[in-house]
């Protein structure tokens, strides 16, 4: 008969404790996992994001200890946060903090900008806020694009993608909801264009097909749409405060199609009229018909 010494006993009981608690936690997760889409209303940007992730089951559902995270906000433009051309910096910072807290080894924030990168990173406020929250904020380096084959692609069969996004264990897509004359509204699907290389202008031809092709190549773990402020007209660059509407909403979920589909409603657009959402649903990237999506709406002011 073997006897346990004190150290072994401690180790086993600690292990058992962890196992038991994780079992409890995972049960809780399973329950919350049912939400593919959450919509949080009426709070500060940080509150909205925090509530969204907690409602989805907490950041530990997406980020495991020691994992690497890439957050891809929209930092495309040399504009201030109030002008609603870039993702809200407080929301990005909050997600960084939550990833760190969940035990992420490394959290990176980057975007391939439209205006000059340093200007965009600085004036959007995202660089400073994310760095403060503990992220590595990086400029795009040309040599880090890798060509990815897209077997299911209809028009785009292969395209260069940014290595950091391909290699990250967790990829969090964080667009801001904005008017856009080609995609109608730029949301999660369009935001993927910030991690692709090559001549992006070519994507604008047959955009509705090509954007779905690109989204076949990389699927975000989580999509968080910043609709704290949305840009209604003259997007995606904006610049006029009269075109900005303060909505105080964050939409998040694991189904990238559902998330975009819901956000179309903020612009009074019927998502079934949007070709890329139809195509994406057909190809099994998600569900645009919100009646088929498990969705939870939380109003923080209520």
């Amino acid at each position: 008969m073997s006897t346990l010494n004190r150290r072994e006993f401690m180790a086993i009981s600690a292990g058992a404790g962890i196992a038991a608690s994780s079992l409890l936690l995972s049960q809780k997760l399973v329950a919350d996992d049912a939400w593919a889409l959450v919509v949080i209303k009426n709070g500060s940007p940080a509150q909205l994001v925090r509530q969204a992730i907690n409602t989805l089951g907490g950041m530990s559902r997406f980020v495991k200890k020691g994992q690497t995270v890439l957050i891809k906000p929209n930092i495309g433009w040399d504009r201030l946060p109030e002008q609603a051309a870039n993702t809200n910096p407080e929301e990005v910072a909050e997600v960084v903090k939550m990833c760190k807290k969940a035990g992420a080894k490394r959290v990176r924030v980057l975007d391939r900008t439209c205006n000059q990168a340093r200007r965009c990173y600085k004036r959007s406020g995202i660089e400073a806020a994310s760095k403060k929250a503990g992220a590595q904020v990086r400029y795009i380096v040309k040599s880090r694009f890798e060509t990815v084959r897209i077997p299911g692609g209809e028009l785009v069969k292969s395209w260069p993608f940014y290595r950091d996004a391909l290699e990250a264990d967790v990829f969090i897509n964080m667009p801001i909801a904005k008017d856009h004359s080609i995609s109608r509204v730029t949301l999660g699907f369009k935001n993927i264009m910030g991690i692709i290389g090559g001549d992006r202008g070519q994507i604008h031809k047959d955009f509705m097909t090509k954007i779905v092709d690109l989204n076949l190549a990389i699927k975000p773990t989580l999509t968080i749409i910043d609709a704290y402020r949305i840009l209604l007209r003259n997007g995606p660059s904006g610049g006029n405060l009269a075109d900005v509407a303060v909505k105080k909403i964050v939409i998040a979920g694991t189904d990238p199609v559902a998330v975009d589909s819901y956000a179309m409603g903020l612009f009074d657009i019927d998502p079934t009229k949007i070709e890329y959402l139809r195509k994406a649903t057909q190809r099994g990237l998600g569900q645009m018909d919100l009646s088929k999506v498990k969705m939870k709406v939380v109003d923080l002011s209520a």
């Binding site: 856009h180 080609i182 031809k205 003259n234 610049g239 006029n240």
Partner: peptide
């Protein structure tokens, strides 16, 4: 020239009223 949508120019146009 090609009867296709593009509008990359419009997307980037920076004046607040494009």
């Amino acid at each position: 020239y090609d009867q296709q949508d593009c509008l990359v120019c419009e997307e980037h146009c920076p004046t607040p009223d494009k």
